[in-house]
Design a protein around this nucleic acid. Structure first.
Length: 373
DNA sequence: AATGGTTTCAACCGCAATCAC
DNA sequence: GGTGATTGCGGTTGAAACCAT
């Protein structure tokens, strides 16, 4: 794939020439930098460095931004006189100016709006201020419980499509919903042990090693502690997102465990008979050399995947939300993040990990008396 | 009251999609 | 169909508000 930039017509070029006279060496520099810019992806700092070295620091600093604008030409600045534009919080006077102008002329042509309205703001900033704050149909104030439920439900279907979520919550903006999600709902879900990305309970909150240890003990087996740690280390089991990784790290600090598995229900049988395989129906363990084939129901045998939040919300009266194709096609396995492929891959890989060739299965299990506390 | 840490949310940024010519 | 302009979107930032000590 080529990395070239398209250089526009000459009038575009002349319109962007700096107001100060260019030195001949600067013109040469521009040409050189233009070639560099066309053939590589360099940023302003790199250009500044090059420019400093070719022109001398005292002269370069003020000019380099303008020159860089010429070099990158492919993208016009979003506003004219960007340097003199005001940024930061809007004053009541500015708000009034914007409101008055939009009442008279309507919310259109944001590029010329600030100039016509007498605002020293970027058009983009005006649009955002209007859309997120000044629009008359915006509902301010705290989100109701109903709104919160709707957001959670929609997020489980749509993910971070804030504008789509906002479209179904009259009076709320995408920005507001996004902020509310990040500051309130997300935290609350985490506190409840629900993954805010997948909307499923987080198995990584379980101490897998202690579960395994107690089961091994019940079975009269002793597991080599090193192997136990190895088997429950996230590196062996797929890590799918940073959040899980972070939490896994936290848990690891305490317990040296916590693979970030994402089941909505995890059933650990209270009794395991000799007939039941230790790893039971957890699927093909996928070991390249030592494949522990699935057999009877066992420790992981009764794992069931259910719609947790979605089931919980079924009776909450949000029928206005039409099911998406994904929802309609989904089986009982319901992982709401990533693409279909990612989800499929993740689910099928949950228990796929490799045991090194040098590993002797006897290192894992050895018959010793149960541990006593 | 002062200080430092945390939370909140308006505003910004960069990119992509869409529109207009 | 190509190009530049405009708009929309999601992630991120940072100042102000809030809270704990």
């Amino acid at each position: 794939m080529s990395n070239t930039k398209t250089f526009p017509k000459s009038d575009f070029f002349t319109a962007r020439l700096p107001s100060f006279p260019l030195l001949s060496r600067e013109i040469v520099s521009i040409s050189v930098f233009a070639i560099i810019a066309m053939t590589s992806s360099i940023d302003l700092l790199q250009v500044e460095e090059l420019y400093n070295s070719s022109l001398g620091k005292s002269e370069a600093t003020e000019r380099v931004k303008c020159l860089w604008d010429i070099i990158k030409m492919g993208r016009a600045p979003c506003c004219e006189n960007k340097g003199s534009l005001k940024k930061g919080p809007w004053t009541p006077e500015e708000d009034l100016q914007l409101i008055n102008y939009i009442h008279l002329h309507g919310p259109a042509n944001w590029r010329t709006l600030p100039k016509n309205a007498g605002l020293r703001r970027c058009g983009k900033s005006c649009r955002l201020r209007w859309a997120n704050y000044l629009r008359p149909d915006i509902k301010r104030g705290r989100f109701s419980l109903e709104e919160e439920d709707i957001i959670i439900q929609l997020h489980s279907v749509l993910g971070n499509k804030w504008s789509a979520i906002a479209g179904r919550l009259p009076g709320r903006t995408d920005n507001e919903i996004k902020n509310y999600w990040n500051t309130h709902i997300r935290k609350r879900l985490l506190q409840m042990g629900i993954d805010p990305v997948t909307h499923t309970p987080r198995l990584d909150l379980f101490d897998i090693s202690s579960i395994l240890r107690s089961v091994f003990t019940m079975q009269g087996l002793f597991m080599n502690p090193n192997m136990l740690n190895l088997a429950t280390t996230p590196s062996l089991l797929s890590l799918k997102n940073d959040e899980n990784h972070d939490l896994a790290s936290q848990n690891t600090a305490q317990t040296q465990v916590s693979p970030p598995l994402e089941f909505t229900q995890f059933h650990v049988p209270t009794q395991i008979t000799n007939e039941e395989g230790l790893f039971g129906n957890m699927g093909n363990l996928g070991c390249s050399n030592h494949v522990l084939q699935q057999n009877q129901v066992g420790l992981f045998g009764d794992m069931a995947f259910v719609h947790s939040l979605n089931n919980a919300n079924q009776n909450m009266g949000h029928d206005s939300v039409p099911p998406t194709p994904k929802e309609l096609n989904s089986s009982s396995i319901y992982v709401n993040c990533g693409t279909e492929e990612e989800r499929d891959s993740y689910c099928s890989d949950l228990f796929n990990f490799e045991i090194p060739e040098t590993l002797n299965i006897g290192d894992i299990f050895c018959s010793v008396p149960p541990l006593s506390n």
